[in-house]
């Protein structure tokens, strides 16, 4: 018999990590492993309340459990924020295409992220770090509203700063007085970067407005639109390319995405609204 595509795999929350005032990471252990590619997403069920799509923020190499970073933004995410260790949940997926990491080999990977957009980027970054020598270099340009709003602070300010081949620069919209880094939106730290454009790819994930301006700046820097990868999160309701909610132009974000090149979607002027 063909499997019911809406049937989730039972899972439970084994740890909850406070990332910022509005963002938590949940470590979720499914009853059976759910292998995924970095950048793919899953539908996380809170039984009785509903489900919502999230891209895991953990490395795909860790298959027995996954981390999902969630900003309190709507009904289901608010309820998830109230969940404690041991909470039963469900996971179905993975869905979508993920980042084409293999095609990044030998290149400069230029990553621009903002806010909770760092969640899919963390998974990508962990994947890249595992084989960091395969890439010419990996450049991260991340922004947050205030220093407190950065997520993954431990690794972001600690371990990741020491990895050879990985260059991280951070900026905040507003300093808290103790911040000695850049102040300004993330696009303000892109201009001065020297990138070997012909041999580079860009990855952007963050709030729509940030993705819009970051994409424009990257094009201005000389990136070809087919080398700019965007994570287009939409209201993926069924996850299997039927229900129509996540349509972006002719694409189903859940099937054809969630990772698109700017070239694929630039003809739709309302993608950032």
């Amino acid at each position: 018999m063909v499997k019911n595509p809406y049937q989730p795999i039972n899972a439970h929350i084994v740890d909850v990590i406070d990332e910022s005032s509005t963002i938590k990471s949940f470590v979720v252990k499914p009853d059976e492993p759910i292998p995924f590619k970095t950048g793919q997403f899953v539908e996380l069920t809170l039984p009785g309340e509903g489900e919502a799509p999230f891209t895991p923020s953990s490395s795909p190499n860790q298959s027995d459990q996954m981390e999902i970073t969630i900003m309190k933004a709507g009904r289901v995410t608010s309820l998830l924020h109230d969940c404690k260790k041991g909470q039963p949940v469900g996971i179905r997926g993975p869905y979508g295409n993920g980042y084409p990491v293999d095609t990044f080999t030998g290149k400069e990977v230029y990553i621009v992220g903002g806010g909770v957009g760092l969640a899919p980027i963390r998974s990508l970054l962990l994947t890249l770090i595992d084989r960091i020598k395969d890439f010419k270099r990996v450049v991260c340009r991340f922004g947050a509203r205030t220093p407190e709003d950065f997520i993954y602070k431990d690794t972001l300010f600690g371990q990741w700063q020491k990895i050879g081949g990985l260059e991280i620069k951070l900026t905040v919209d507003k300093s808290n007085g103790q911040w000695d880094g850049n102040v300004g939106v993330v696009t303000t730290i892109l201009k001065s970067d020297d990138v070997d454009i012909q041999n580079a790819v860009a990855v952007v994930c963050g709030p729509p407005i940030m993705m819009k301006f970051a994409s424009m700046d990257l094009v201005e820097k000389g990136f070809k639109s087919e080398d700019i990868y965007l994570s287009m999160e939409k209201n993926m309701s069924c996850g299997i390319g039927k229900c129509g909610h996540c349509m972006l132009g002719k694409y189903y974000v859940c099937k054809d995405g969630p990772v698109f090149t700017l070239n694929q979607i630039k003809e739709y002027p309302d993608i950032w609204d």
Partner: peptide
């Protein structure tokens, strides 16, 4: 409880709304 699906329509105002009240076809 149950999980169900129900007809929806792309002309309805909140069809493309996601968490945080971002509406991609406002």
């Amino acid at each position: 409880g149950c999980r169900y699906r129900a007809w929806d329509g792309c002309l309805l105002e909140n069809f493309a709304t996601v968490a945080g009240d971002h509406n991609f076809r406002k």
